[in-house]
Nucleic acid binder design. Structure first.
Length: 117
DNA sequence: TCAGTGACCAGAC
DNA sequence: CGTCTGGCCACTG
């Protein structure tokens, strides 16, 4: 089980114009308690083209903005996709949150099985 | 081996 | 809204 590769895989599946939370990613990767590691994984993955700008914390804040080229880069990318980001660097998850359920979790887990990651 | 550190989280006030 | 608390776990020196 390669947690980082799973994170990368999941992030590429986040629909444009939506935002996902760290806990959500961790859960979809099969490790609900590893939300902190998701941030670390994304930081590494930025260089590899992972769309990390769609990931925010559970309150909707862009907590990883400082890890982009510029602090405003993440916000800019989101706005360009139609996601509203307020002056405090926060998105409304009610409106732009990526909704996932048990079915989605099962789907990802079986993909991981067959891809052996 | 071990303590410090994080792009975190849910619950309680 | 905001702050605090306990829990979490890979990575690092």
């Amino acid at each position: 089980m390669n947690f980082y590769k799973r994170v990368s895989f999941v992030c590429r599946k986040i629909p444009k114009g939506k935002a996902a939370t760290y806990g959500q990613i961790a859960t979809l990767c099969g490790r609900p308690s590893n939300s902190r590691q998701v941030g670390f994984a994304l930081k590494m993955g930025l260089a590899g083209g992972v769309p990390a700008h769609r990931v925010v914390n559970s309150s909707g804040f862009l907590s990883g903005a400082k890890s982009f080229k510029t602090e405003t880069e993440q916000k800019r990318l989101l706005v360009a996709e139609g996601v509203f980001v307020d002056e405090k660097n926060r998105v409304n998850l009610k409106k732009f949150g990526w909704k996932t359920d048990g079915t989605d979790i099962s789907w990802f887990l079986s993909r991981f099985e067959e891809l052996n990651i």
